[in-house]
Simulated scan of single mutants.
Amino acid sequence: MPQVVVSIDGKTFRMACAEGEEAHLSGLAQEVDARVNELRKSFGEIGDQRLVVMAAIMATDELSEQRRRVAALEQSLAETERAHQDALRRAEAGEERLVAHLDAISDAIDRAAGRLGGQS
């Protein structure tokens, strides 16, 4: 299993990851490091553990908001799909009525043609 060495808040950590995930893990660690540094600039020296917890809460808050947005989009997509299926059913019903009307017109034309042919 590959290992990656990352630096967060000036501290080095060796972390294991799945094959091919090394760059992704390094990128995530850089984001955490940036959050901790941002918090340190805003709040000063309030303790490493507190800064890391605050960074984790901020990331979790963003994740929660994204999950909420995904759920809303999934609901909207499902409603759109239901509306699409309803429209297809209505279109099929309209098509069936149109075919029935065309059949009736065709029959009427055939009857009229038969009557006209019998008059000669």
Results as ranks from 00 to 15, higher is better:
residue 74 E to T: 14
residue 75 Q to A: 15
residue 75 Q to W: 02
residue 76 S to M: 07
residue 76 S to G: 13
residue 77 L to I: 07
residue 77 L to C: 07
residue 78 A to C: 14
residue 78 A to S: 15
residue 79 E to W: 06
residue 79 E to A: 14
residue 81 E to L: 14
residue 81 E to W: 05
residue 81 E to P: 04
residue 81 E to G: 03
residue 82 R to E: 10
residue 82 R to T: 04
residue 83 A to W: 07
residue 83 A to C: 05
residue 83 A to V: 05
residue 83 A to H: 10
residue 83 A to D: 15
residue 84 H to T: 08
residue 84 H to S: 03
residue 84 H to F: 06
residue 85 Q to N: 12
residue 85 Q to F: 04
residue 86 D to Y: 02
residue 86 D to T: 13
residue 86 D to A: 15
residue 87 A to V: 07
residue 87 A to C: 10
residue 87 A to K: 14
residue 88 L to R: 08
residue 88 L to C: 05
residue 88 L to Y: 01
residue 89 R to Y: 11
residue 91 A to R: 05
residue 93 A to S: 12
residue 93 A to F: 04
residue 94 G to R: 02
residue 95 E to I: 02
residue 95 E to P: 00
residue 95 E to A: 10
residue 96 E to L: 00
residue 96 E to V: 01
residue 96 E to H: 08
residue 97 R to C: 06
residue 97 R to V: 03
residue 97 R to T: 03
residue 98 L to F: 10
residue 98 L to G: 10
residue 98 L to S: 12
residue 99 V to L: 10
residue 99 V to P: 01
residue 99 V to M: 01
residue 100 A to H: 14
residue 100 A to F: 00
residue 100 A to G: 08
residue 101 H to T: 13
residue 101 H to W: 05
residue 102 L to F: 07
residue 102 L to Q: 06
residue 102 L to I: 14
residue 103 D to C: 00
residue 103 D to H: 01
residue 103 D to V: 00
residue 103 D to K: 02
residue 103 D to Q: 06
residue 104 A to Y: 01
residue 104 A to G: 09
residue 105 I to H: 07
residue 105 I to T: 15
residue 105 I to M: 13
